[in-house]
Simulated scan of single mutants.
Amino acid sequence: MKKSKPSAVARFSSQIMAVVRRIRRESQNDAESWARILLLGAIDRSGNRATPTELALSAVMRSSNLAAALRELDEQGLIVRTPDTADKRKVRVALTAQGECLLYESRARRERWLAEAIRASLTADEQAQLLKAGELLERIAAYDGPSPPMD
């Protein structure tokens, strides 16, 4: 069977994933694993008020893996867990100052690499186009419609 040329959408998906992999590789300088950085980011995006269940959904982690990761982050002084004020059965997770510092340094390192890659690889017009395309990507990421059925 002859391999067909990838569709434009398949090629676009591959291009996005190549950038994501490169950004992830840039974060490997962190002492923390990529999964831990993603978890710290999910806590930060929650406004430091997420429950473990919300974090598991946001970070796409199984509850057993999440529990182990939260335990590690707690032991490292990167997060604090406190009982929910309205429902004492629930726990809320927040970043400590040390956790925020680690997360923000990781983000800054990745952003510096991306800014340099954009500056070095693209013309001024291409840079403007790329940043405008970012707005389109946000709209695509926010799409909440159903997935099409498998053929």
Rank of each mutant, 00 (worst) to 15 (best):
R62H: 06
Q129H: 14
I140P: 00
R62N: 04
L103A: 11
G145Q: 07
N65P: 00
G77T: 09
A117C: 05
L130W: 12
A10T: 12
R71M: 05
Q129W: 15
L102Y: 01
E54I: 11
E26V: 12
L130I: 07
L114I: 00
S106T: 15
R119S: 09
E32P: 02
Y143K: 03
L114A: 10
A86D: 10
P149F: 03
N29R: 13
N65F: 01
R119E: 05
A67L: 12
E75K: 15
L130R: 08
L131W: 10
E75G: 11
A86W: 01
R92Q: 09
E32K: 06
W113N: 01
G77W: 10
E100C: 04
L39V: 05
E105C: 03
P148E: 05
R11E: 01
S7G: 15
R22Q: 15
T123R: 11
S33M: 04
E100H: 07
A68E: 12
I140K: 11
S13K: 13
V60R: 14
P52N: 07
A18G: 02
K90M: 14
A128K: 08
P146T: 06
L70E: 00
A133L: 11
I79D: 00
P52E: 02
R71K: 13
Q98H: 09
S63R: 15
Y104Q: 15
L122Y: 11
D144Y: 08
T82D: 05
N65D: 08
D84C: 08
E100V: 00
Y104L: 14
E135H: 05
V19D: 02
E111R: 05
R92N: 09
L95W: 02
A69I: 01
R45C: 11
S4H: 10
L122S: 06
L114P: 00
I37V: 13
E72I: 02
P6N: 05
P52R: 11
I43G: 02
K88L: 13
L136S: 06
K90P: 03
A108E: 12
S7W: 14
N29A: 12
T82P: 01
V93Q: 01
S7Q: 12
